[in-house]
C-alpha cells in the first residue's frame, strides 16, 4: 500500500502538513505559539503522543472493530497524553510549569485522532509510526515557525527560555533581536496567532503555486 517512507515524511512535513494543509490542531496552534520555545515544546509533546499512539493503534488495529474504533482511539490517545502529563510533571518539572497547562490540550487536538483514523487504522506498524513521527515533526516545525514570527514581532526575542526546555547548553539559542519594549504587542495576543498562521499558509500556497502544483483543499487524506 505505502509507496515509501520518503513520501510519508514529505507528506507530514510539507505536502499534507497537519497545520498548513489539513488545518487540524488549530487550538494548540493558536494558544501555544506566543514564543518559538513554547511552540517547539508543544510540538515535541504532540510528536511524542502521535508517534506512540499511531504505533499502538497500528499494532492493535486487527483487534479493534470498526464500530468501537473511535472510542478506542480516543482512549489510547488520552492515555498517552496522561502518561506524558504525569511523567513531565515528575521529571521535567520546570518545563511542565511552562507547558503543563497545555498538555491536556493534545487530547482535543484533532491531528492525532485524524492520523489514527486515516493512517494507523489501516497501515502496518512501522509506516504508521513513521507517519506519526512525520506528522508530529511537521506540526512541530509549523508551531515553531509561527511562534518565532510572533515572538520576533511581539517581544523582539527569539527562542527566549529555550534553555528551560532543552537544557542549559541551548542558552546560545536565546536571541534578542529588538530592544525590550519595542515589539508589536498584538503579535503575542490572540489576533497575532491568526495573522501569523494566515501568513504562513499564504506563503506555503505561493511556494506550491510557483512549483506548479495544483491547489486542492486537502482534507485528512490517507497516503496510498
Amino acid at each position: 500500500m505505502s509507496s515509501g517512507y520518503a513520501k510519508i515524511f514529505k507528506d507530514g512535513l510539507w505536502e499534507n502538513n497537519g497545520v498548513l494543509c489539513q488545518m487540524l490542531g488549530m487550538c494548540p496552534t493558536m494558544a501555544m505559539t506566543t514564543s518559538a520555545t513554547n511552540g517547539l515544546g508543544m510540538g515535541l509533546a504532540t510528536l511524542f503522543v502521535m508517534a506512540s499512539s499511531n504505533l499502538l493503534i497500528a499494532s492493535l488495529r486487527n483487534y479493534i472493530t470498526p464500530q468501537v474504533r473511535i472510542p478506542v482511539f480516543i482512549l489510547i490517545i488520552a492515555a498517552m497524553v496522561t502518561l506524558v502529563d504525569m511523567t513531565m510533571n515528575a521529571y521535567m518539572h520546570e518545563l511542565y510549569k511552562v507547558l503543563g497547562l497545555f498538555i491536556p490540550l493534545i487530547v482535543s487536538n484533532c491531528l492525532p485522532l485524524g492520523r489514527a483514523e486515516v493512517f494507523a487504522a489501516k497501515e502496518p506498524v512501522l509506516p504508521s509510526f513513521c507517519d506519526g513521527l512525520a506528522m508530529g515533526l511537521g506540526f512541530t516545525a509549523a508551531l515553531t515557525v509561527i511562534g518565532a514570527m510572533r515572538e520576533i514581532t511581539g517581544s523582539g526575542t527569539l527562542f527566549a527560555d529555550a534553555s528551560l526546555l532543552l537544557g542549559p547548553a541551548f542558552k546560545v539559542m536565546e536571541l534578542r533581536l529588538l530592544p525590550p519594549g519595542d515589539g508589536v504587542l498584538m503579535a503575542v495576543l490572540p489576533p497575532g496567532g491568526f495573522l501569523a498562521t494566515g501568513l504562513l499558509l499564504a506563503v506555503k500556497r505561493m511556494i506550491d503555486i510557483r512549483a506548479g502544483k495544483p491547489i486542492s483543499m486537502a482534507g485528512a487524506h490517507a497516503v496510498t
Binding site: Y63, I64, T65, Q67, V68, P71, V72, L75, I76, A79
Partner: peptide, 12 residues
C-alpha cells in the same frame, strides 16, 4: 464490541 472496548479501558 462492548468487550473489546472494555478490555481496552481495563488495560489502559
Amino acid at each position: 464490541h462492548a468487550l473489546i472496548l472494555g478490555i481496552f479501558c481495563l488495560v489502559f
